[in-house]
Design a protein around this nucleic acid. Structure first.
Ligand code: FES
Ligand code: FES
Lengths: 142, 142
DNA sequence: AATTATTCCTATAGTTTTGGTAGAAAGCAG
DNA sequence: CTGCTTTCTACCAAAACTATAGGAATAATT
């Protein structure tokens, strides 16, 4: 039940963009530096986020990425979905055909309840909330 | 956020054992047959479940596996934990040292809420409930 | 027009995890 | 001692993950 670095890095990068929302574009290099991860790898994740319409790119010197919408209007469920795919713990939740005996399988009910529980958390959290929380943590340092 | 076949097969195998609880041991071969998966592979999972103390083996002709405790006393959280490890979506939830900046990371709060949500489902479900549900589905066929 | 900092595209590759297979040893009821 | 089962150890192929690399496109700035 682990999330890959795609989801982990991607969410954190989006929080960075949310924290700097309205302050111009943020280049991948800088985000990667702050996060202490490979910029070249983060590149790929940003591409996925861009193609999903969550961020926009400014391709030039001193360009970078900005959120496509206000942080208040981006739910974490969208971000995770782009990077990890559905949060279904097993495929038969989304597609009954994935398991042979799906119609008579109690386990499936359990997976469904798990998915619902996770989705509930992701759906009820916005990037703005996370950005606020992040700023809090930084302020407490002073 | 996918669960591997370990968790998927393992949970289903445990439900089988719960359904036949009190009716003597069930050999891996039969369980695998019912589930339509490789018996040799299921072997490994049963060994893990045995070593965790969830099932007991009877090693002889017409032997097999039985639940170590009543199905009412086995929560799904235990089963999943044995096979998938912690349900933490990322390692830093269980071990703050896993991420460099864990103390100042808002994402970690999100992962923690996700874990809690999942755990809540798994903790509040027993094997007995699943066995009852499974019997229901079968009865409805008639 | 050249410079420059950036995204964007495509390809490659090492490592780990997954999902199995194989074979033989050990236990024990009958 | 035979037959059915678990148990142990080892191995393996394919997929997924986690990158890395090199260069082309873009457009503001000089
Ligand atoms: S239907 Fe997919 S695990 Fe049972
Ligand atoms: S602390 Fe692990 S993702 Fe932030």
């Amino acid at each position: 039940m682990k999330m890959s670095t795609k989801g982990r890095y991607g969410v954190r990068a989006m929080v960075h963009l949310a924290v700097h929302y309205g302050q111009g574009p943020l280049p991948v290099r800088k985000i990667a530096e702050k996060m202490d991860v490979s910029a070249k790898y983060l590149d790929h994740l940003m591409t996925a986020l861009r193609m999903a319409g969550l961020i926009r790119s400014i391709r030039k010197a001193h360009g970078g990425y900005i959120l496509a919408r206000s942080p208040k209007e981006i739910r974490l469920s969208e971000v995770v979905k782009v990077l990890e795919g559905s949060v279904a713990p097993v495929d038969c939740v989304d597609d009954a055909g994935a398991c042979h005996q799906a119609d008579f399988c109690t386990a499936r009910d359990l997976w469904q309840r798990m998915q619902k529980a996770m989705n509930n958390v992701l759906e009820s959290t916005t990037l703005d909330e996370m950005a606020q929380g992040q700023k809090m943590k930084w302020n407490n340092l002073i």
